[in-house]
Design a protein around this nucleic acid. Structure first.
Lengths: 338, 338
DNA sequence: TTTTTCTGCTAAAAGCTTTTATCATGAATC
DNA sequence: GATTCATGATAAAAGCTTTTAGCAGAAAAA
């Protein structure tokens, strides 16, 4: 007889069926107060039998913790957001915390609406995420009565923020190329006004020293193509490796190299950035690239907001999570190239 | 003096500040009962001043409607889910309804956990979405006390389900090619065990009649490439148009054609399916393709679950939403080709 | 035996809102 | 002047849970 009635079972039903008071039922179920072991077991069995599940609304109303958080994103496309959101949700579901997803489309009115809805719902915290590091939220998040964590987005100075470690990621790519014996490494990346592009480029320049060249453009395949054409058209030594600021750019680079009959990886090795599987797996040859560990970023943000919502201290400032090198075939193996 | 205290303002604070009772305050704010116009205004002004916002938990507890819904997805990647989720959220936020996003990763345990959490939260309904039409949920959704809507996923016979109209979408593609004077149209698509692939293929065969050929394979670029190579390697007439089952396949097709020095669109026109902008915009030439209107699908699903949760009737069965042709440059214009 | 301590349980309050039923008050009707 | 009516306000209940304070009974200590 599992909850066949039309109305949800309440703790009152449990108490009645077990022949105890409501408080005893509550104590038995939550292991609070003093309860006889035998009674406790009976209450629990009855609760199970009639399919009792506590009402999260009533619980939240009393405890002032709703065990829900809001995730505010201004990414419409979802390539970055969904893996992070899945990571957040995955790590929190085991703590009984659910996630409201709010897509703001970067529209301040929509963002404000979502924010108010979240506050009305007494969420325990908010995770703000964007599609780029240096984008501030479309709505004021700084004077909120609940904690806020920023992931892949710029927060105020003293806020808790998680970034992928673009500097380390870029170094990973360059070091990999160097280990394979490449020395003339070129960097083709996105627009200079993207913080991530600047960080990666600087890291590349620091690692490669003299002769290094970073070409800024768009986050597009077209730009990768165009950049390679211009580099191979001009006189002078040609690069033997290209480190790209994104997988899309890498894709354009690979296409252009093929058009020029340049062999990959024999003549030129290519490394991408993003590990956007659907692109990186499909290039010919499959692309060696840098994974930003978006899901892990989500895990960390989720745990951070969880701690903050419990009042536990979390170190403020920017935490950079290491990227991971994913080796496929666009650089060759050390053996091949050696 | 906007809520500078440490605790949220309640209706009790409003009542006190306005010098009325709690019930009067509630009536004034919600336009219920009988209230003097002057009192009503005063209460509202005070509420605004002290920054009162009703507690959704208390409200939901009483009304038994939480004004929240759950969205259960088994898509890890997010290319389909996030646009739909954004659509759902966008249409519901104006009705004061928020969306819990639950990524199940197709793991029954995780799905069960999420489902229970949603029920505990008294959500007003659940939207289940998958990455393919013929995938059933990883958890039992049929005997729930709340309505369920299926989007882009297979539901039980009498359920409310929304699909993109693959048949019409395929016809849109074929008709477009025919209008441009193409007659030998080939279809390269994904695995035969995907319902969507079968529907699109059948629609194509119906529209093209004799000589039409549908090649089933993978949803990958590689397969598109491979298929083109084999077709152009065998003797006989070559196609003057290729309708692809996905943009990724189309991308492989375009690459292969370029390798073969076949001009696009002069020699062969190409149409894709998905309007996955990041792919479709980046092919050379940019891809004419079919958009499944995922956001609109989300809108409709959101409105359906809203109606159902209010007890309003919603026609059961599968509703197919029309796809849209997005013309770029991979088919040429009627003028060019005419 | 009387007092203290412990055990197991319970009544009641609190959390915040909406709704129902009730209560004054002044105006209108008889 | 007595009765009805309409108005504007209010007290209290309901929704479901957890927690606090307290109560009875039994066991232990005096």
């Amino acid at each position: 007889m599992k909850n066949t009635g039309d109305r949800r079972r309440t703790i009152y039903d449990v108490a009645k069926a077990a022949g105890v008071s409501i408080s005893t039922a509550s104590n038995a179920l939550n292991d609070t107060g003093r309860t006889n072991a035998e009674t406790r077991e009976r209450v629990r069995r009855v609760a199970e039998e009639i399919g009792f599940r506590p009402n999260a609304l009533a619980r939240g109303l009393l405890s002032k913790r709703s065990h829900a958080i809001g995730m505010l994103t201004n990414d419409t496309y979802g390539r970055l957001t969904l893996p992070m959101a899945a990571g957040v949700s995955e790590v929190l579901v085991d703590h009984g915390v659910s996630v409201f997803l709010c897509a703001t489309n970067n529209d301040p009115r929509l963002a404000q609406l979502h924010l108010e809805a979240l506050l009305d719902r007494q969420v325990d915290g908010i995770i703000f995420t964007a599609t780029r590091l240096d984008l501030t939220p479309p709505v004021q998040l700084s004077r909120l009565p609940i904690p806020v964590v920023y992931v892949f987005a710029e927060g105020p100075a003293d806020s808790v923020t998680f970034f992928p470690d673009d500097e380390q990621g870029a170094r990973l790519a360059v070091d990999h190329l160097k280990e394979l014996g490449r020395s003339r490494i070129l960097h083709i990346t996105g627009p200079r006004d993207y913080l991530a592009a600047r960080i990666r480029a600087q890291s590349y320049l620091d690692a490669c020293g003299d002769g290094a060249e970073a070409m800024f453009g768009d986050w597009s395949e077209e730009w990768g193509h165009e950049a390679v054409q211009s580099v191979f058209a001009r006189p002078g030594a040609k690069p033997d490796a290209i480190f790209c600021g994104s997988d899309e750019i890498a894709r354009g680079v690979i296409d252009a190299l093929r058009d020029l009959n340049v062999e990959i990886p024999t003549d030129v090795a290519v490394v991408g950035f993003d590990n956007w599987e659907v692109v990186a797996r499909q290039t010919r040859p499959p692309l060696t690239t840098i994974d930003m560990e978006l899901k892990e970023l989500g895990h960390r943000a989720g745990l951070a907001i969880l701690s903050l919502s419990k009042g536990e201290p979390v170190p403020a400032g920017i935490t950079k999570l290491p990227c991971r090198l994913v080796v496929r075939q666009s650089c060759g193996s050390p053996l091949q190239s050696g």
